[in-house]
Amino acid sequence: MAIRRKLKSDILFNIINLFLLSIIFIIAVYPIWFVLCASISDPVFVNTGKVLLLPKGVTFSGYVSVFKDPAILLGYRNTFFYTIIGTFINLCVTLPAAYALSRKDFVGNKLFTLIFLFTMFFSGGLIPTYLVISKLNMVNTIWVLLVVGATGMTNIILSRTFFVNSIPPEMQEAAQIDGCSNLRLFTNIILPLSKPIIAVMSLFFAVGHWNEYFTAMIYITIPKLKPLQLVLRDILVESQFNAKMIEQGVIDVGEISERLKLQELIRYSLIVVATLPVMCLYPFIQKYFVKGIMIGAVKA
């Protein structure tokens, strides 16, 4: 039975900690709050800096425009699909590989690690990669978004670190002495103990898929396959070609006002709508970070 003694330094520590955390909270939250306010404010007020703590010139037309656009809804549907299936594929590729690399008795461990690491630094570049993918007939298909980026060395290493440091070798050795095969060892013992890392990796991969636009930008030109971020980018980012034209006075800004008006109006609403689903994901993952999950397992 532990005796709890409240040391004076403990109380001081608590106070300082809470104070700092509150400041961090405000700094982190204010810009988000700003985005929310701006999404329902008149763009003229937003751009002259008059929107500070509360929305001004409240209007919901930004959101209305966003939901009326069929391209955005299509992008939503596509992104959900890519995220769910893609994350599953990511986990199936990354976690077993990370586990294999975590075993000291895995012959070729160092070799494989180096082979994988090398790819982080040297890549052929866009054109050869495109050529390979094109030869595999993956351009303009769902596979290019599900498979490219199926794993990354960073995530493999993070998972490997977790396996090495958080799963006691005694457990694995006990299982092996009992005659357990590597496969059963992995699925029945390691995975259930790895909930935190599975949760974290799922989150990382899911967010990666959700925010994906570069791969889609290069390999997808068919509208019905476009993910949400690409649709967003089409609307929000000023096309380079047109920007050059504006600079040269070829297009006078006043005349393309319709498009700029659209951009201004839906810029912030679009951001809110595009990031809301993923933001809601985290609370579900949080419960896996609860302390003390390991205890029961070792004792048993």
């Binding site: 866009l126 054109i127 495109y130 050529l131 094109s134 030869k135 351009v139 930008m217 290069i218 030109t221 068919i222 509208p223 980018r233 089409d234 980012v237 000023e238 096309s239 380079q240 070609f241 047109n242």
Partner: peptide, 28 residues
């Protein structure tokens, strides 16, 4: 096949490099 203006040059170069390109390129 419609692409956004700022990605047109990249798209065109990779398509021409991989020998899988359309009949006409326009506007970029």
């Amino acid at each position: 096949e419609i692409v956004n203006g700022d990605v047109f040059q990249t798209q065109m170069s990779v398509q021409l490099a991989s020998n899988n390109y359309p009949d006409i390129f326009a506007r970029g």
